[in-house]
Design a binder for these strands. Structure first.
Length: 283
DNA sequence: AAGGCCTCCTGATTGC
DNA sequence: TGCAATCAGGAGGCCT
């Protein structure tokens, strides 16, 4: 489910339930997900206060008063459900457990946070807070696309000499951290750049145009509460609605929405993943 | 060492 | 209706 806007939406959805709140009890229903959970994870979470929730790329970082940080990645199918009744902030009394509920956090407020991940590509790990950024999964990440260090100079330099399609370059988390298949398709459509074009062969002016386009697309998607495909819900229980604004992703056969273009959105496969684009206005 | 391919896993959808 | 093939929002790890 989750690219940067979806993860940011989940983070915001978790805030009222978790921020400045003690984890009364953590329950762990399996050994791990993509990798084994760290030793004693349930004990290291139980009784600890969540000082804050940060996001880095597609990771959520929960800083605990024990000096450790819980690192969360949702993979492809990971979701967070918040349940319970508290000051009108939480939507439901606790519903029945579901298949693939792997980690449950009972908060002292009465809220329950449930991590469900059918495909188990997700990750949970614990790291000393001061070393969170140096964690092996975070250390190589490129700049945050909504931050100041992501700028035209950075992207032009990162693309220089790269012989890979721009689609793959933008999916490379070392170049810019947080884009996934959907938003790369949208950004390339918005900038009129073909996904098959080699990153190193795009003129600097066109590469530079990607920077504001990436910021705009991600910003709009966050504002819309992310994208909800196949009815997947966000942590708050609400549906995001950015999927209704897709110009390219999952729109094979539809007319291109670029004014005056008249082309049709096509689907091709690049490095095993679908790319949706208009061959008429994306060159 | 950049680039491409495979893999992990389950579930929904499509096609026959 | 059944069953198999295909596809899915990620990304580490291995190979060349």
């Amino acid at each position: 489910m989750p690219e940067l806007p979806e993860v940011e939406t989940v983070r915001r959805g978790l805030l009222p339930a978790m921020e400045n709140t003690v984890i009364a009890e953590a329950r762990v229903n399996r050994e791990g997900l993509r990798w084994p959970f760290p030793p004693g994870m349930a004990e290291r979470l139980t009784g600890k206060r969540v000082l804050g929730l940060r996001r880095r790329s597609k990771y959520i970082l929960a800083d605990l008063d024990s000096g450790e940080t819980l690192l969360i990645h949702l993979g492809m199918s990971g979701r967070m459900r918040v349940s319970g009744e508290g000051l009108g902030l939480f939507h439901h009394a606790h519903p029945a457990p579901e298949k693939h509920d792997h980690v449950v956090l009972e908060m002292a407020s009465g809220a329950r946070v449930t991590f469900n991940d059918a495909r188990r590509f997700g990750v949970m790990d614990l790291v000393a807070t001061g070393e969170a950024e140096a964690h092996r999964l975070l250390a190589e990440l490129g700049p945050e696309p909504l931050g100041n260090s992501f700028n035209e100079d950075h992207l032009v330099a990162a693309f220089r000499g790269r012989n890979t399609p721009v689609k793959a370059a933008l999916l490379d988390q070392r170049i810019v951290a947080g884009l996934g298949n959907i938003y790369v398709c949208e950004v390339l459509h918005r900038t009129g750049i073909s996904p098959v074009r080699k990153a190193g062969k795009i003129g600097a002016a066109r590469v530079a145009r990607l920077v504001p386009a990436i910021r705009e697309v991600l910003g709009e998607a966050i504002e819309a509460g992310g994208s909800s495909l196949r009815d997947h819900r966000q942590a708050s229980g609400e549906l995001g609605y950015f999927q209704h604004r897709f110009a390219a992703y999952d729109r094979e056969g539809h007319p291109c929405s670029t004014p005056g273009c008249g082309g049709t959105i096509r689907r091709i496969v690049q490095s095993g993943r679908s790319s949706f684009y208009c061959g008429t206005c994306q060159r």
